[in-house]
């Protein structure tokens, strides 16, 4: 029988859907019986999802122009060489 400590050890693989089907079944049984572990699994999954949903901010015009200036100068240099 899976304990809360065992569940925590398997949590990553469970969330990443890469644990053995038999282990997954045991975890799901444990989650049905243990409200605390159910909340930990649910809120950890939400934590990962909320970060995955974040959009990266655009570069400022100044930074973009600086970056392209340096890269293009490098490219022109490489072409000549």
């Amino acid at each position: 029988m899976l304990t809360c400590k065992d569940f925590l050890r398997e949590l990553n693989d469970y969330l990443d859907k890469c644990c053995d089907p038999s282990v997954r079944a045991e975890i799901e049984k444990h989650l049905n019986d243990c409200p605390n572990c159910f909340v930990v699994a649910d809120t950890t999954k939400k934590t990962v999802n909320v970060y995955k949903g974040m959009e990266a901010q655009p570069l400022s015009d100044k930074l973009k122009s600086k970056l392209m200036g340096v890269i293009e100068a490098k490219m022109r240099g490489c072409k000549k060489a």
Partner: peptide, 19 residues
């Protein structure tokens, strides 16, 4: 040696690399 192609790669990934 296509400068435009590398610029396109920069456009695609610059935000994520900066983050």
């Amino acid at each position: 040696g296509d400068v435009g192609a590398f610029s396109e790669l920069i456009n695609r990934y610059e935000r994520r690399i900066l983050r």
